[in-house]
Design a binder for these strands. Structure first.
Length: 292
DNA sequence: ATCCAGGCAGATG
DNA sequence: CATCTGCATGGA
């Protein structure tokens, strides 16, 4: 048993228990487009899969329980994945000074940015381009069913070795569409990257490197930076963020990279967190609404 | 049936 | 530098 200062939680074997808190909400964590391999099992239970591992999250009246799959051996992987040592009350306080964010923060209580593995995140977001979340999930589930391992109840994410063997027709076959033609190339390029070299690089330098890879442009790079490399001075701007920007920030037309730049100047090192609260707020957009 | 989704690559001003 | 076009697929 161990006890941590910030968000109180205890661990034993493969289980994490935290008292009911405003800083952990499975729906908000999973349902805001940073991760795609998850399922809602019932009203109080979610399952999330990442790499070789799986976790079951149960939200009871007074506590939240995270059960990690046996192959985790302990709870360390998911303690890190859910970033349990980061104090979100601090982040929320800082961001609340921006009036426009208050409602988004309030409605996104318990949202957390995951510390997802770099390689898997890169593949996920190459597939995400000009796609929708449902279909991204569909494609990734097919990928794992075909190339991952069946661990009695869930499929793992394929190894790099397996992915290096894929060709364009494989990706077409699982519904990746036109993204199929650059996925095999991107996988080879990603496999050649030594992630530890990023540590000495600025966010802009890493971003430039990512954009040089097949199928990765500014937006996908920003998602990889934020979710896979914990670069919180990133602000991915997709169609939803663009609409919300015009609705809540400024009507003046700008390109997406310009919107991103402007919002990073505003939110600085908390840009990524601000971005997720805003993205989580996208459900408030009605489909017929005229946004410009 | 038409539109759209966590956009990118390549071509053209 | 900015802007324009083609691109696969499945759900609404």
């Amino acid at each position: 048993m161990c006890k941590i200062l910030v968000m109180e939680y205890v661990t034993s074997k493969n289980e994490i228990k935290l008292s009911k808190t405003d800083d952990f909400n499975a729906k908000h964590i999973l349902d805001c487009g940073q991760v795609f391999r998850f399922s809602k099992l019932d009203d109080k239970t979610y399952e999330v899969r990442v790499g070789d591992y799986q976790a079951i999250i149960r939200e009871d009246d007074k506590k939240i329980t995270i059960n990690c799959s046996d192959n985790c051996h302990d709870t360390k992987f998911f303690e890190n994945y859910f970033d349990l040592k980061t104090d979100y009350s601090l982040i929320k306080n800082q961001l609340s000074k921006y009036g426009v964010l208050r409602v988004a923060i309030e409605s996104g209580q318990g949202l957390r940015i995951l510390r997802a593995p770099f390689f898997e995140t890169a593949i996920n977001f190459i597939i995400s381009a000009n796609n929708n979340i449902k279909r991204i999930q569909l494609i990734l589930n097919r990928l794992c069913e075909q190339l991952g391992e069946n661990r009695n109840g869930y499929y793992t994410f394929p190894t790099i070795e397996k992915l290096l063997q894929t060709d364009e027709s494989f990706w077409r076959g699982i519904g990746a569409g036109y993204r199929a033609k650059y996925l095999p190339k991107a996988i080879k390029q990603l496999a050649d990257i030594d992630e530890s070299k990023f540590e000495a690089m600025t966010t802009q330098e890493v971003r430039k490197k990512l954009i040089s890879l097949a199928g990765i442009g500014p937006k996908v790079a920003d998602c990889i930076l934020l979710f896979g490399l914990q670069r919180y001075d990133s602000f991915p701007v997709d169609t939803w963020i663009e609409k919300l920007y015009y609705k809540h920030f400024d009507k003046t037309p700008l390109s997406r990279p310009q919107i991103s730049k402007k919002l990073i100047e505003k939110f600085e090192n908390l840009s990524g967190f601000a971005q997720q609260y805003i993205f989580n707020y996208r459900s408030t957009l009605s489909k017929t609404e005229d946004v410009i």
